[in-house]
Simulated scan of single mutants.
Amino acid sequence: MASPERFTHAGATLVAERRGAGPPVYVLIHGIGMGRTVFADLTRHLGDGETVALDLPGYGEAPEPPRVPTIERNADLVAAYLRARVKAPAVIVGHSMGAQVALEVAARHPGAVQGIVLVGPTVEPSARTAPRQLWRLLRDIAVEHPRVIALGAREYLRAGPRLRTKFRAMLVHRPEDVFARTDVPALVLRGEDDVVAPQAWCRQVAAALPQGRFEEVEGHGHETMIRDAAPAARLIREFARAL
């Protein structure tokens, strides 16, 4: 396994940790306040190709950029990294806010993408306010496993004092305006107990994507890729094999 690598484009830097060898190449993009370390269990269970787990700018070990990037700018950075370092179409797996980034990578840079997996996608138009999103996150955390809470707390601290601005960048993005332009195979994945990404919204996302389909992971909530990731990994592997 190579050491984590830094990649800078247009004034922002991401950190990538690569394991295994592809194809397929899975690129894992975390949610708000998180980082690549939360994907350790998912990486172990994917196992049939190469995984590239990312820290977006200002998260995990990636340095804070001069300005908090928009979702679109984060997508451009990820695509630039894929073109420069991966050089093959990838399966982009985005969790929570990372699903918004994955969506924009596919819409803006389709040549870099083999397919996308949107896990617990945010933000539902009817809940596009900070109080509603925070309330859903708090309700989700209240029933989560202590391991997930511990990992999340560490990553939120590492995300630093600009987390409020990063949260705002997530909220102003309108994924519903991007669905029709995302004409790549897409799997929308949801834990059946996810209160952050309701079932009706996830089904709406899958129906609006030109090549979308919906799957649900029994007995999991919003952090279905973090805690006991085996069921999610199985569905992701099946999706990738069909591409």
Rank of each mutant, 00 (worst) to 15 (best):
M1N: 06
S3W: 09
T8S: 14
A10Y: 11
P24L: 07
H30S: 05
T37H: 13
T37W: 06
F39D: 00
F39W: 08
D41M: 00
L46W: 00
V52H: 05
V52T: 04
L56I: 05
P63H: 13
P65V: 12
P66G: 06
R67C: 03
R67K: 10
P69S: 10
T70Y: 09
I71P: 02
V78Q: 02
A79C: 03
A79S: 11
R83A: 15
A84M: 06
P89F: 13
V91Y: 01
V91A: 02
M97Q: 13
G98C: 00
A99P: 06
A99Y: 12
V105C: 04
G111F: 06
I116E: 11
G120T: 00
P125H: 04
T129L: 08
P131L: 13
R132P: 02
L137N: 05
P146T: 09
L151R: 04
G152R: 10
K166C: 01
F167G: 14
F167N: 07
L171N: 05
L171S: 09
R174K: 14
F179A: 13
D183N: 13
V188G: 04
E192H: 07
C202M: 08
A207C: 05
A207D: 09
Q211F: 08
E215A: 15
E216G: 09
V217R: 03
G219E: 11
H222N: 13
R227K: 15
A229M: 04
A230K: 14
R237M: 06
R237Q: 05
A240I: 04
A240M: 00
R241E: 13
L243N: 02
